[in-house]
Amino acid sequence: MHIDLSGKTALVTGSTAGIGFAIARGLAASGAEVVLNGRGEARVDAALAKLKQAMPNAKLRGIAGDVGTVEGCNDLVTALPEVDILINNAGIYGAQDFFEISDEEWSRYFEINVMSGVRLSRAYMQGMLKRNWGRIIFISSESGLNIPTEMIQYGMTKTAQLAISRGLAKLTSGTGVTVNAVLPGPTMSEGVEVFVKDLARQNKQSEQEAAANFVKQHRPGSLLQRFADVGEIANMVVYVASKEASATNGAALRVEGGIVDTIA
C-alpha cells in the first residue's frame, strides 16, 4: 500500500518534538504540506529547520501559537483558515497526588488537552464537510481507558477526547470526512528519554534495563514489554489520515502494545 497525501494540508498541534514531530515527519514523507505548531517561535523554527534538513523537498510551514488558549486557537485559524487533516496532538501530562491538584490545575489540563481539540475541530470541520473530505485525529492515550492513579487529571482528559472524537464522527455520516482517536501507550519521546536516563543513574542500570524494568513494573500487562518508538505511533496516524483509511471512522485505535486487557 502506497500512501499519497499530495495536495493535502495537515496541521499537527504540539509538533515541535516527540510524537507530534514524528507525525509531522510521517505526513510530510507521504506528500502532505505540513504545518508544525508549538507555543513559541524559537521551538517552532528549530523543529522546522530540523525537519527541512532531514527532508529538503518536503512542503513545510510553522505557526507558533498556544492552542491551550482561545486566543492561540483563533490566531492559528486566522493564519491557516483551512486544513484537510487536523491532528489534535498538543497536550500536557505529569504525576500529581489527587488530593493536591487544585481547581486551577484541573482547568489547565482540560483547556490544553481537551478544549484545544474542540476549538480547532469546530473551526476546521465545517470546511472539511463542505469539501466532502477531511481527517480529524485526536491523540488520546491508553490512560483514557486505564486511568492512572498518579495522573487522574491526565486520564480524565484522554477519556474526554474519546467521547468527543466519537461524537464528532457521528456528524460526518455519509461524507468523506472521518474522525478517529489514536491511543498510544508508553512511548520513548524526548521527555521520557530524560526520565529513563535519570532512572538508570538512580538505579545504577543501563538505560535499556531501566526502560524495560519500568514497563514491567508500571505496565505489567504490556504485551510489547517495551516503550514504543514515536515512529510506531506516527505510522498509525499517517494511515488513519490517508485516503486508504476511508472506512475507519469513530474508532479508538490502540497503539499501546497490548496493555489494555480487552478484546473490543
Results as ranks from 00 to 15, higher is better:
Met1Ile: 14
Ile3Thr: 10
Ile3Phe: 03
Gly7Glu: 15
Lys8Asn: 08
Ala10Arg: 08
Leu11Glu: 06
Phe21Arg: 06
Ile23Phe: 03
Ile23Trp: 02
Ala29Cys: 11
Ala29Trp: 07
Ala29Lys: 10
Gly31Cys: 13
Val34Glu: 00
Asn37Leu: 11
Gly38Asn: 09
Arg39Thr: 14
Val44Asp: 14
Ala46Arg: 12
Ala47Met: 09
Lys52Arg: 15
Lys52Ser: 13
Ala54Tyr: 07
Ala54Ile: 10
Met55His: 06
Met55Glu: 14
Lys59Phe: 04
Lys59Trp: 11
Lys59Pro: 12
Arg61Thr: 08
Ile63Leu: 05
Val70Gly: 14
Cys73Tyr: 05
Val77Trp: 04
Val77Ala: 04
Val83Glu: 03
Val83Trp: 02
Leu86Trp: 01
Ile87Asn: 00
Asn88Pro: 01
Asn88Thr: 01
Ile92Trp: 02
Tyr93Leu: 15
Ala95Leu: 14
Gln96Thr: 12
Phe99His: 11
Ile101Lys: 06
Ile101Pro: 04
Asp103Tyr: 15
Trp106Ala: 09
Ile112Lys: 05
Val114Ser: 06
Ser116Asp: 06
Gly127Arg: 14
Leu129Pro: 11
Leu129Trp: 02
Lys130Phe: 13
Gly134Trp: 01
Ile137Ser: 00
Ser143Ala: 02
Asn146His: 10
Ile147Ser: 09
Thr149Asn: 07
Met151Glu: 14
Gln153Ile: 09
Gly155Asp: 11
Gln161Ala: 04
Leu168Ser: 01
Leu168Met: 11
Lys170Asn: 14
Leu171Val: 03
Leu171Asn: 01
Ser173Glu: 13
Gly174Lys: 12
Thr175Ile: 08
Val177Leu: 04
Ala181Pro: 07
Thr187Tyr: 01
Thr187Arg: 07
Ser189Met: 06
Gly191Glu: 09
Val194Thr: 05
Lys197Gln: 02
Lys197Tyr: 04
Arg201Ser: 12
Glu209Thr: 13
Phe214His: 15
Gln217Thr: 10
His218Ser: 05
His218Lys: 12
Arg226Lys: 04
Phe227His: 10
Ala228Met: 13
Asp229Asn: 15
Val230Trp: 01
Gly231His: 04
Ile233Lys: 04
Met236Thr: 11
Val238Gly: 05
Ala241Lys: 13
Ser242Cys: 08
Ser242Thr: 08
Glu244Val: 14
Ala247His: 14
Thr248Phe: 11
Thr248Ile: 15
Gly250Asp: 01
Gly250Glu: 00
Gly250Lys: 00
Val255Gly: 02
Val255Met: 04
Gly257Met: 02
Val260Pro: 08
Asp261Cys: 15
Asp261Gly: 07
Ile263Ala: 08
Ile263Thr: 08
